[in-house]
Computed example of a mutant assay.
Amino acid sequence: MSPTAPTLVQWVAPSPAVAYWAASAFYNAIDALGLFAQHRIRPSDEECKKNLATRAAVFRHMVIYHAVATSFLLVAGEMFPPPVEKQGGAGTLEWFYFVLEKLFGWQAESSMAYCCSWALRAAYLVARQFLALVILDTWVFWCHYFEHQVPWLYRNIHSVHLQLYTPFPFGALYNHWAESIFVDGMGAMVASVVIRLTGAEQIAFFSLVTIKTVEDHAPYELPWSPFVMFARWTGAGVVYHNVHHQSWGLKTNFEIYFTWWDRWMNSTYRGTRTLQDRQGPVV
C-alpha cells in the first residue's frame, strides 16, 4: 500500500520551519559570499563582539524549537483543523461572480466579470492576511512592551532573546520557551482563529510572518525585498528592529510589523545613534 499524501492541514505544521531555515540560509549565504555589501546595515565585525549566546548554541536551540513546534502544530491541526472554505460561500470566486451578476447584470462567462471577480478575490485574501497581521502585531507589541516594563519578565524571560545584541538571521526566534509559546505562538494562533484562516491561508500567513522576522534580524536591508518595500509604508523595517537589539535602543521600537503602537506609547527610538557606530562589548 502506498503512503498517503500529506493533507493541506499537515502542510501547515512544517511551513514556519521551512520558511525560517530557507530565509536564514539565504541571508547566511549572501553574508558568507560577501554579496550586497552596499546594503549592509552594520559593520560585519560587530556581530561577534557583543553577543552573549554563541551561534552554535543558538543553532541547537532553534533545531529543537522547530522540532517541538512542528510536532505541536501537527497534533493541534489534527485536533482542531482550520476551517474549510465552502464552495460558493462568501469571499469565494463564485460568490463574487454572483454579486457582480446581481449588481451589474454581468454573466460569469464575460471577461469583465472574470477579471473583476479575480481582482476582488485577491483583494479579499490580502485583506484577511492584513487583518491577521494587525492582530498579531498588537499581541506581540503589548507582550513585548510589558516584558520590558516588568523587571521580572525581562530578567527571567525576554533577556534570553536580547542576548543577541547584534542579531543574526537564524537567531530570529531564539527565545525563552515561555516567550515562544505565549508571545510568538499564541499571537499567531489568535490571529489565525479570529480571522478564521483556512489551511492554505495559514501556510501563507505563518510563512510570511516568519520570513519577516528572520529578515528583521539580518544585517542587510535589500531594497527589492517585499518586506522592505512594505516597511517603507509602515516604518517597521530591518533597521527599526535592529535598533531595538542595541544596548542603546532596548527600551524602544517594540513593534515588528507596524509602528502605530510605538508612536502611541512614545516608544519609538528618537536618539542619534546608528547601527554603523562601532562599539565595545556590552557591560
Rank of each mutant, 00 (worst) to 15 (best):
E85I: 07
G105K: 01
F72E: 08
S24R: 08
Q87D: 06
E101D: 15
A56S: 13
L100K: 02
Y97K: 04
L93E: 00
A23Y: 10
D31M: 12
V63H: 01
G77A: 03
E85Q: 11
E78T: 06
A67T: 09
C48V: 13
V58C: 06
F98M: 13
E78G: 03
A37K: 15
A76L: 12
F59C: 15
T92Y: 00
A69H: 06
V84K: 07
S24M: 08
V99F: 14
C48E: 15
F98Q: 12
A53Q: 02
L52N: 07
I64N: 03
A57C: 05
A57H: 10
S71P: 02
P82I: 02
Y97C: 08
K49S: 13
G77V: 00
L74V: 09
N28V: 13
P43Y: 14
A37E: 15
T70E: 04
L33F: 05
E85F: 04
Y97A: 11
L52Q: 11
V84F: 06
K50M: 01
K49G: 13
Y27N: 05
F96K: 05
V84I: 08
T54W: 01
L103F: 02
N51F: 12
Q38A: 04
T70N: 04
T54P: 12
V99M: 12
S44D: 15
A56P: 15
K86F: 02
P81T: 00
F72Q: 07
F26I: 10
E94S: 09
R42C: 05
F80G: 10
A76Q: 10
L73I: 02
E101W: 12
A56W: 06
G88T: 05
I64F: 03
K86P: 09
L93D: 01
P83Y: 00
L74K: 03
I30S: 10
H66W: 12
A56E: 13
M79L: 13
K50V: 02
P82S: 15
R40E: 05
F80H: 08
L33D: 10
A53C: 08
Q38C: 09
A90R: 15
W95E: 01
A23S: 11
N28E: 11
E94K: 09
K49M: 13
F36G: 06
C48H: 09
F36D: 05
A25E: 08
L100T: 02
E85S: 05
E47R: 06
G105N: 03
K86T: 08
T70S: 07
F96M: 12
L33V: 09
V58A: 02
L103P: 08
Y97M: 13
Q38V: 11
F98R: 14
P83R: 03
R55Q: 05
G89W: 09
